[in-house]
Amino acid sequence: MEPMLKARGLVKRYGKVTALDHCDFDLMPGEILAIIGDNGAGKSSLIKAISGAVVPDAGTVTLEGKEIHFRSPIDARNAGIETVYQTLAMSPALSIADNMFMGRELRKPGFRGSVLRQLDRKRMEEVAREKLSELGLMTIQNINQAVETLSGGQRQGVAVARAAAFGSKVIILDEPTAALGVKESRKVLELILEVKSRGIPIILISHNMPHVFEVADRIHVHRLGKRLCLIDPKEHSMSDAVAYMTGAAVPEAA
C-alpha cells in the first residue's frame, strides 16, 4: 500500500547540530502513527520538516505519491496537513473564533464580502462553537473571549478543534495531552479516534506511553535524528519502547 505521507533521507542541520540525519518516515492511510523519542532526538524537527515550518536541507517528502516542497506552514495547510504545535500557535489577545479561522477567514456572501471584504463573524462563531461542542472539551460561555483568558487545557482544546475542523489529509498533533487533566486527555484521545474513523491519518507525538499504546496503530521510534525502528504496540510492551528510544536496548530488526 502506498503511504499517505512519505519522507526519505531528510537532513536538517542547525549550525553544527544535526537535528535530522537522513531520516525516513512513512504514514499509511487511515492509521494513527505515534512518534516517540527522547528529548532532543529530533521529533520536533521531523514534524516541522513535514509541516512546512522548516525546509529540510536534503531529502524528499511525498504526499499521496506526489513529491511536495513546502516553503511555509501555509503550503502544508493548503495541501490538507494541519498541525497542532506544542506552543499551540494562537494569538492570545484575539478571540477563540478569530483564532480558529486565522488565515482562512470566512467572508460574507455577496457585495459585503467581495467588495467590502467583510468577515462573516456570525458564521465563524457558529462553526467555532459547533466544533468546540463536538469535542465536548469545554464549556466556553463566550466564543468571543480572548484566548489568553482560557486555561491551558481549554487552549489546547481550541487548538485541537481547529486542526480537526480543517485537516483533510493529515493531522499532526505535537504533545496534545501534555497540558491536560485526566478527563480532558480522555476527550482528546476520543477525538483522535473519531478523526481516525473519518479516515484521516494522524501523527501523534507524545511522551505519554499509556496514551501512545492505547491509540496508536504503529509506533515510530526516533533516536539520534533518525527512525530507529517501527514497532507494533500489540507485540511490544511499553518497556520495550522506552528501552529502544533511550538506547538501553537494540531492536532485533535494526
Binding site: 500557535a89 494562537m90 492570545p92 484575539l94 486565522m102 488565515g103 482562512r104 471584504r117 468577515l119 463573524r121
Partner: peptide
Amino acid sequence: VLKHTAWGRHVYAVGDDPDAAELSGVN
C-alpha cells in the same frame, strides 16, 4: 478594516505573536 476584515485581524495577530501567526497560516 481592522475589526471586520481578515487583513485587519492579521495585523493584530502579527503584532500579538508573529510566530504563532505564521504557524496558523498568516502571511
